[in-house]
């Protein structure tokens, strides 16, 4: 018998009576709060398969629900709603609408792998978190998270030049996420950084932003990787039935 845990004790599922008499017994006050009965009918039966089709989600079926991942989790300590074990449960049960309630925080996993270290079943919960965050984005439930933007900006630069020049990656990331680069704490940081640096060092840093470091003879590697990324993307779209979705939508519009 599945335990529908948290979802059962949300305020909208509770019923409170000021005066309640059951079978002639007055149960007003403390004993007057009941959890409403509820029927879940909107299971997404392919949810687990979709998540396991994305990189990192492959081993989700191995989960035993022991809770070691959540217990060890860095983000859970800061935000108790961040609960990898619970999300794995919802995915395996196909309870998509419940999962969607937490859609805006799943991407916050910091990839510390404490969960992976603790998991007795080699589920690789860190990977499952990434797969789930990507699933949410690919299905259009959430916009691309800042983290995904950063990953993309970063990977584009590696593909282009073979190496990362940090300040450029940073500027592109801030531009793409439409944030102001010069936040007060950054200005303070740059001030402290420049303080005490010799002129030669500053020139070197300046040059690095102009002439980005590159790996030479990189174009063939770059092309091969881009081809591989596109291929994988295509496969995943199919697994998520996204092409079908788009097709159906088009037909609907046409009709």
């Amino acid at each position: 018998m599945p335990i529908h845990e948290k979802s059962l004790i949300r305020p909208e599922n509770l019923e409170t009576h000021d005066n309640l008499v059951i079978d002639g017994v007055d149960v007003s006050g403390h004993w007057s709060t009941f959890i409403k009965t509820r029927v879940v009918s909107d299971y997404n039966e392919t949810l687990q398969e979709e998540i396991s089709a994305l990189p990192g989600g492959e081993e989700i079926h191995r989960c035993w629900q022991c809770g070691s991942c959540t217990n060890a989790c860095t983000v859970n300590e800061v935000n108790p709603d961040f609960n990898p074990r619970y999300w794995i449960y919802l995915i395996r049960m196909g309870m998509e609408s419940e999962l969607l309630r937490d859609k805006d925080i799943i991407w916050q996993c910091v990839s510390c792998n404490k969960c992976t270290y603790a998991c007795p079943r080699d589920v690789f919960p860190e990977g499952v978190m990434k797969a789930t965050a990507h699933w949410l984005e690919r299905k259009g439930h959430t916009p691309k998270s800042p983290s995904t933007h950063f990953d993309e900006v970063f990977t584009e630069q590696v593909l282009k030049t073979g190496k990362i020049e940090e300040s450029r990656t940073m500027r592109r990331f801030f531009a793409r996420t439409k944030q102001k680069l010069l936040q007060p704490w950054m200005i303070e940081m740059v001030k402290q950084m420049i303080n005490g640096l010799p002129v030669g060092m500053l020139t070197r840093m300046g040059l690095a932003t102009l002439i980005a470091p590159r790996t030479s003879d990189w174009s063939k590697a770059s092309a091969a990787m881009q081809e591989y990324i596109d291929e994988q993307h295509e496969k995943q779209e199919q697994a998520l039935s996204l092409a079908e979705l788009v097709e159906t939508a088009k037909n609907d519009v046409a009709a």
Binding site: G127, F150, T155, V158, I229
Partner: peptide, 20 residues
């Protein structure tokens, strides 16, 4: 003539790219 190892980011685009 080394290249970036993929850092913490490339694996999120594709783990095998990072391996490469």
């Amino acid at each position: 003539n080394w290249n970036c190892c993929g850092a913490m980011e490339v694996k999120n685009v594709d783990p095998k790219l990072q391996t490469y």
